[in-house]
Amino acid sequence: MKTSARLEQAISKLYTAFHNNTLNPECCKSCAVGNILDNTDTWKHLTEGHGSLNLTYVGKVNEAFGRKLNGYSPLELLKIEAAFLSGCGYKLPLSRKNRDSINRSSKEVMFNGMCAAVAILCELDDVANVMDFSKLFDFKEDKPVYELSF
């Protein structure tokens, strides 16, 4: 499967952050988008709130001028972050009220969030979700449809 450089870099950064335990949904530098943007928080000025899909004036201007951050438009970044937060179990936009019940140190919570972010990343590049392994379990006449190759 041919993928874009931006997709490969984004997935690589999320993978590294996941395994280094540096994904933190409540920190703008360590969340999905923070990691994709090299652990910077400049992207937070593009949104009305963490997890919101509404662009601020600054976000709208950057979007209108076609500005890209590591290959992603401001609106694409907000979609990625919203998917990550939703995947972690947060209600959006993020607020103090809905932070108590999420275990940020849980690998399962971070994995679910990362999977949701990767699904959006793949959708944005119009490629099949690289995290979808369900085809491996397709069968026809008691034989697998797809072979597992290494």
Rank of each mutant, 00 (worst) to 15 (best):
T47Y: 01
S86Q: 08
P74A: 09
G59Y: 01
L94I: 04
C28L: 04
L7S: 06
T42I: 13
L7F: 04
L53N: 07
D126S: 11
K68W: 05
D142C: 04
A119N: 11
R104M: 14
E76Y: 13
V127Y: 12
K60H: 14
S95F: 06
R96A: 09
A116N: 08
L121F: 13
S86G: 06
F84I: 12
V118S: 03
T42W: 15
E108S: 09
C122H: 07
Q9I: 01
F65Y: 09
L75C: 05
D100V: 10
S106G: 00
W43G: 15
I80K: 13
F150Y: 12
E147L: 06
S30Y: 12
W43F: 13
V118W: 01
D142S: 02
R6K: 11
S101H: 14
M1H: 10
L23W: 01
D142I: 15
E81A: 13
A5K: 03
L23I: 06
C27A: 07
V127E: 11
K107I: 00
G87I: 15
T40H: 15
K107G: 12
E147Y: 10
L148R: 07
M1C: 11
T40D: 00
N112H: 06
T22F: 12
V127Q: 10
E48F: 06
L92G: 09
T22S: 05
G71T: 04
R99I: 11
E147D: 11
L69E: 10
L14S: 06
A10R: 01
T22K: 15
G71R: 07
E48C: 14
D138L: 13
G59I: 14
P25I: 08
S52V: 11
E8V: 02
M114A: 09
Y146L: 02
V118D: 14
A64H: 02
T47K: 15
S106V: 00
P25G: 12
T56Q: 02
